[in-house]
Design a binder for these strands. Structure first.
Length: 425
RNA sequence: GGAGAGGUGCCGGAGUGGUAACGGAGCAGAUUGCUAAUCUGUCGGCGGGCAACCGUCGCCCGGGUUCGAAUCCCGGUCUCUCCGCCA
């Protein structure tokens, strides 16, 4: 969430930035600032009351030690009004803090100055394109047909055992999956990201830390008996490693990566969006995460974009990069680049990666800070990106790299999956 | 799942109702002068102040009792030991 301090100091910049999302926060921010002013006055009163009562308590302690019981009782009588006053002030403080917190949780992050205003995906800005997406070869089969024909992925078996959106990968389909994960992890390793295997379930504090709670509660699978959520992305456990941590300024940037399955309920999706591998309830992804110095975080974001570009080049897929407009960005992001690969058979772009800088929005929730050279503590900037999400990559590989007799595996992947082709049987 | 013990600062570790001993590490400053020693300081949140600084809260978390809670009470959580179950 946004910091109160930033609302106090640069309200107008933030309001203008939020306008790019078509989010009018004027009323909410004004309200928060008013509550904050009351809160500060209330605290001054409360502190003063507690100070008085501390003085009296010490006096009582001293008198009792000296054996002056009657005098001590007399002082005790003086404390009752202070006690009533302080408990009332405490209640007011708590109520104000809750109100402020709830209000802040409902204000999205302020987009960076370079983010375009816009309402939907149509206003996104294409910043890069590679490969030929214009040559449409209509003989090409969609990936779901190939997956079935070559026995790579069994959607029906998954539906039987679990439900729609939980496919089985089998044979070369499973090996391709494993090979891609390996390739992505090794590329991340080479780029200096430390590998983690995180838990696949998280508690509510972690869900709040990265912003899935309370806004996106309905998108996560929830174990009610144990109050745990299945992770929708490795971003959640990886970023929460540094929840409530004071890092050393010299240790920045901190670079983490990890492979996990991701679980998403995807409530409300339907039709061609969910055909084949386009949208699943469980899918595999390698995630990269960085904790960066505020002055470096946009250079860091560029570096992460370059990293993902390298992966897509190695996969020899046509792709483009979009800088999302205000209206299409996630709630917590200040700037997001989406990567999309071209699906030759479906003749449309498929999102395979989203790389974002959250600036201090997550760090404020996480309380992840460092002590600067100025001796003060500052929030770090957090960033993350998919590098990469598997299903749509597999879809694009099957559709783009097919010839008359089968699928050619890009040479970068061959050593990791162990075969060069998948032949049509 | 059952029983017991425990959680104090960066680390070790005292503290059974009077407002966090002591020892060590790192860092900073001062001082001595040289394989270093000594002294002082050292954390976080919130609020006030130009600032030095002041107030308040923080002894796993959340409540409660009390003039006053690390200490007593209730709930939770995590760790350890034993038993049970188990890949």
């Amino acid at each position: 969430m946004l910091t109160i301090q930033s609302l106090r100091e640069e309200k107008h910049r933030i309001l203008a930035a939020l306008d790019k999302r078509h989010f009018d926060a004027r009323e909410a921010i004004q309200q928060v600032l008013e509550w904050d002013a009351v809160r500060r006055k209330t605290q001054a009163k409360l502190d003063d009351t507690l100070a008085q009562s501390n003085v009296l308590s010490r006096k009582i302690g001293g008198l009792i030690r000296e054996g002056k019981k009657e005098e001590a009782e007399a002082v005790k009588a003086q404390t009752s009004s202070l006690k009533a006053q302080s408990s009332e002030l405490k209640e007011q403080m708590q109520a104000l803090e809750t109100q402020i917190h709830d209000a802040l949780c409902h204000i999205p992050n302020a987009p960076h100055a370079d983010v375009a205003a816009g309402r939907s995906a149509e206003d996104n800005v294409e910043t890069f394109r590679s490969g030929d997406a214009s040559t449409l070869e209509h003989h090409k089969k969609p990936h779901w047909d190939i997956a079935e024909q070559c026995q790579l992925i069994d959607f029906e078996l998954g539906a039987k055992v679990t439900g729609a959106g939980f496919p089985f990968y089998r044979g070369k389909g499973a090996k391709l999956q494993r090979g891609l994960i390996r390739f992505f992890l090794e590329q991340a390793d080479t780029a200096g990201y430390e590998e983690f295997i995180p838990p696949h379930m998280i508690n509510p504090d972690s869900g709040f830390g990265t912003g899935q709670l309370p806004d996106k509660e309905g998108q996560m699978y929830h174990m009610q008996d144990d109050e745990l959520y299945m992770i929708p992305t490795a971003e959640v456990p990886l970023t929460n490693i540094y929840r409530d941590v004071m890092v050393k300024e010299d240790d920045l940037p901190i670079k983490l990566c990890g492979y996990t399955p991701c679980f998403r309920r995807e409530a409300g999706s339907y039709g061609k969006d969910v055909r084949g591998l386009n949208r699943l309830h469980q899918f595999d992804k390698v995630e990269i995460v960085q904790f960066a110095h505020p002055e470096e975080s946009y250079a860091t974001l560029d570096g992460m974009v370059e990293h993902v570009k390298g992966l897509l080049e190695a996969l020899e897929l046509p792709y483009r990069i979009l800088r999302l407009c205000g209206g299409d960005m996630g709630f917590t992001s200040a700037m997001t680049y989406d990567f999309e690969v071209w699906s030759a058979a479906q003749e449309r772009w498929l999102e395979v990666s989203s790389v974002s800088n959250f600036e201090t929005y997550q760090a404020n929730r996480l309380k992840c800070r460092y002590k600067g050279n100025d001796g003060k503590t500052h929030l770090v900037h957090t960033l993350n990106g998919s590098a990469l999400a598997l299903p749509r990559i597999v879809a694009a590989l099957l559709e783009n790299h097919q010839d008359n007799s089968g699928i050619r595996i890009p040479s970068a992947i061959v050593p990791h999956c162990g075969f060069k082709r998948i032949d049509f049987s």
